[in-house]
């Protein structure tokens, strides 16, 4: 194992895999429920929350940022609900209004609050920071077993692992009632299940996964991680447990193929630079989905739904 791999490739690779796994868990249910754009909305809406967290605490610490982004993601859900209550407004229109308004607010806050260039800029929030994750102490394979060297891994990896564990535990806690409420809300209500609270729980878990992934891959590629593995798995199998397992495997495949191809493909073409790792991840996911849509005998029809 050569040193450059551990220093430059391993951290983004692990970060991408962790983020993709954390997003695919709630993403599988969002795709089933026809709520995939919720993730798009939350990822864009996180910007004003991050800016507010920075303004209030004066630091770019992960706690202030995460709390701000979570609050903003949930505010987006509340704003969407409020717009829908105002009159005959379709859910998609309400979502489009709420995320663009919050994103615009974030742009104004970043530009006016003197935050631009300090730690935060809007393009950063859109493109993500996958390439900036490096492990300077990863000079040889021995570093993988050396606690002192491991302690210098980028802290983002630990944050992402924590978010993944949190999302997995939360989803496991509400899994059975949530699945029933997603497939058949009427039946779930008749059984006395708190359908509204379960939807809110899914929104909260989606917000947690989105916020964690947002920092690593940026707003729009978070959507790719939420949707592409889940949608591909949905075209390949009819049973939900199999769909979830397959989606998680595809998430790892998408992240790995994306990160590795971002430098391997240009190198094979004789080019001396790497292309965007986040962008390559989305393209890898798009390729998986296109293949499944074209080739799977189960792509049509409604399957388990």
């Amino acid at each position: 194992m050569d040193g450059a791999f551990l220093i430059l490739t391993l951290p983004p690779l692990v970060a991408a895999i962790l983020a993709a796994l954390a997003c695919t868990l709630p993403g599988s249910l969002l795709v089933l429920r026809g709520e995939a754009m919720t993730g798009d909305m939350m990822a864009h809406a996180a910007l004003p929350g991050i800016a507010a967290g920075f303004m209030l605490t004066g630091s770019a610490g992960p706690l202030a940022m995460t709390a701000g982004a979570l609050a903003a993601a949930l505010a987006a859900v509340g704003l969407t609900a409020a717009i829908r209550r105002a009159g005959p407004v379709a859910p998609a229109a309400a979502m489009a209004i709420s995320f663009t308004t919050l994103f615009a607010l974030g742009v104004v806050m970043v530009e006016q609050g003197g935050l631009a260039g300090v730690h935060l800029d809007v393009e950063h929030a859109l493109f993500g920071t996958l390439e900036t994750l490096i492990w300077l102490d990863g000079t040889s394979a021995a570093a993988l077993a050396d606690p002192a060297a491991l302690a210098t891994l980028p802290p983002e990896l630990l944050h992402l692992a924590g978010a993944l564990a949190l999302v997995a535990a939360g989803l496991a806690a509400v899994w059975r009632p949530l699945v029933l409420a997603s497939f058949d809300p009427a039946q779930a209500r008749a059984l006395g299940l708190p359908v509204g609270a379960l939807s809110a729980a899914l929104a909260g878990l989606t917000a947690a996964a989105t916020v964690a992934a947002f920092a690593a891959v940026g707003a729009i590629l978070t959507v790719a991680m939420l949707v592409l593995p889940a949608a591909t798995a949905r075209l390949l199998t009819d049973s939900l447990p199999r769909q979830l397992a397959l989606a998680l495997a595809l998430a790892v495949l998408m992240a790995t193929a994306g990160v590795l191809s971002s430098f391997a493909v240009p190198a094979a073409l004789g080019l001396s630079f790497a292309v965007s790792a986040g962008g390559s991840i989305a393209l890898a996911g798009g390729l998986m989905l296109a293949l499944a849509a074209a080739l799977s005998p189960r792509a049509r029809g409604h399957g388990a739904r």
């Binding site: 959507v223 790719a224 962008g279 393209l283």
Partner: peptide, 13 residues
């Protein structure tokens, strides 16, 4: 969501 994120990813690359 799939189309917009893949298209954006392609644009970034």
């Amino acid at each position: 969501a799939a189309v917009l994120s893949v298209a954006y990813g392609g644009g970034l690359v």
